[in-house]
Design a protein around this nucleic acid. Structure first.
Length: 453
DNA sequence: TCTGGGGTCCTAGGACCC
DNA sequence: TCTGGGGTCCTAGGACCC
């Protein structure tokens, strides 16, 4: 799909400008695309197991709800303000993200997909009016094609572009687009002086606390910090952030889509688990899921780690136990991964403990097209390759879980809670908006009695 | 009663090699 | 009795991100 007359971003000679396209309250915005009744009311999206807040609408932010807050701690706020809660529907969010990326590529083919809701691109500084028109056109087109509102920030570095996008999001007068590079020095300083240090990309909780303790509280102050002194604390990464604030670009656009270096699949259980067989089924499920992603990346894994969170009956604190094994040869076969994962689990399992979460991590990854073969394995390799292809084909065509290893079990009592999940409007035939309208989970959520429970 | 899940990069220190 | 110096690789831990 292309649109005539949109044009592409100009690439004339001049200073490169970084552009960040950032989706507003992404998960909530995705839900609103298919249920306009959610517009204008406070909405939050919950993490797996309906445990924490991971996205909030502007209306919900006004009640002081922050990302990461556990739901049980703010039940009263949610109830008294009739805040609508939804379980996360990552299938839906990933699909809308894919559509937004497709839309943005119409304007600029070379983009860096930084996260599910953020995209970086560069363009050459040229007639400011031209850029401004195109950026606003881009914002309008994403909204028109996908229905998700975005904010766009521009500046000489990625870090400044992030701050610009934040400014565009907060300041209504910007119309959702802001170019810091076009500002006078005085205005730039004013913008930076209004950004607290822990709102800067690259400054997290630890460095934020340390900087504040040393009297550095704004982006403007961090820009002027003694660099050697800060480098001793925050290393080369911290130094880069300071340089970027000064307008010196240290973080290039990453256009290569190199495969991941590790793949993790883990979940909190919907209820505490003590039974070894049940744990085995969970771990086998995670191993198979990780294997599917491994094959999708066209990678092989040499190392597998199983981790379990333990919640003891007497103590409220949690602890971890992990076991790692090195496989004799890199593999992407579910049977190898499941066997290794279950063996690891058997070695760390203790029958007197209560488990609250577990997961599988694959690492030491290498490219599948450079596979080392086992000279003693005869045709076993080919046979397993064919099996993987058939399994993936069936599950892709007919839905994940159509065919699976018996080791992954059928009961799945351990599965996470997701009581308030919206339908997979765009990826499942049975859940298309029209077919599903009558029994949407949002109907139940919007029913105030539901939130009273 | 109830606190997510999936990543990246950097650094220091240990093992090992010549 | 005296016991180097320089390099690589790996791992764990800490920081960060969405």
């Amino acid at each position: 799909m292309t649109v005539d007359g949109l044009g592409q971003l100009p690439m004339k000679e001049g200073h490169p400008l970084f552009v960040l396209v950032d989706c507003n309250n992404f998960f909530v915005s995705c839900e609103r695309v298919f249920d306009p009744r959610l517009e204008g009311i406070p909405v939050v999206v919950l993490s797996n197991n309906d445990a924490c807040i991971i996205s909030r609408s502007n209306e919900a932010k006004k009640f002081g709800i922050k990302v990461g807050m556990p739901v049980y701690q703010i039940r009263d706020v949610i109830k008294s303000n009739r805040i609508c809660m939804l379980s996360a529907n990552f299938t839906l969010y990933r699909d809308l993200s894919r559509r937004i990326i497709h839309c943005l590529r119409q304007f600029c083919p070379a983009i860096e997909v930084y996260s599910v809701d953020e995209v970086f691109m560069t363009l050459q500084e040229t007639d400011n009016g031209v850029i401004n028109t195109l950026i606003r056109n881009m914002r309008q087109t994403v909204y028109q094609w996908v229905g998700v509102p975005v904010s766009i920030g521009m500046a000489e570095t990625k870090t400044l572009a992030k701050l610009s996008a934040e400014y565009a999001k907060k300041e209504m007068s910007t119309g959702g687009c802001f170019d810091l590079s076009a500002c006078s020095q005085q205005d730039r300083d004013r913008v930076l002086a209004n950004i607290t240090v822990d709102d800067i990309w690259g400054i997290g909780r630890q460095y934020g606390k340390w900087l504040t303790a040393h009297g550095i509280t704004t982006a403007l102050q961090l820009r002027a910090i003694d660099q050697d002194w800060f480098a001793k604390k925050a290393g080369v990464t911290g130094l880069r952030t300071v340089k970027e604030l000064q307008g010196i670009s240290c973080l290039p656009l990453k256009l290569d889509t190199s495969p991941r270096k590790m793949i993790t699949c883990s979940r909190s259980f919907g209820k505490p688990v003590t039974d070894l067989q049940e744990l085995k089924e969970a771990v086998a499920t995670f191993a198979a899921q990780a294997g599917r992603e491994l094959r999708h990346d066209r990678s092989l894994a040499r190392r597998i780690t199983v981790h379990c969170s333990i919640r003891t009956k007497l103590v409220t604190s949690e602890s971890f136990s992990t076991k790692t094994v090195l496989l004799s040869l890199p593999t992407d076969h579910d049977s190898d991964l499941i066997r290794a994962a279950v063996t690891c689990l058997e070695q760390i399992y203790q029958s007197n403990l209560v488990y609250s979460k577990s997961g599988v991590t694959l690492s030491n990854l290498s490219r599948a097209d450079a596979r080392q073969t086992d000279i003693f394995a005869n045709n076993e390799q080919d046979r397993l390759d064919k099996l993987s292809r058939v399994i993936d084909h069936l599950n892709t065509h007919w839905g994940y879980g159509t065919i699976k290893y018996a080791a992954t079990g059928t009961r799945s009592n351990w599965r996470s809670r997701a009581a308030l999940r919206s339908p997979n409007y765009t990826t499942h035939w049975q859940e298309l908006p029209v077919a599903h309208a009558a029994s949407s989970s949002v109907d139940r959520v919007l029913d105030p009695r539901r939130n009273d429970k």
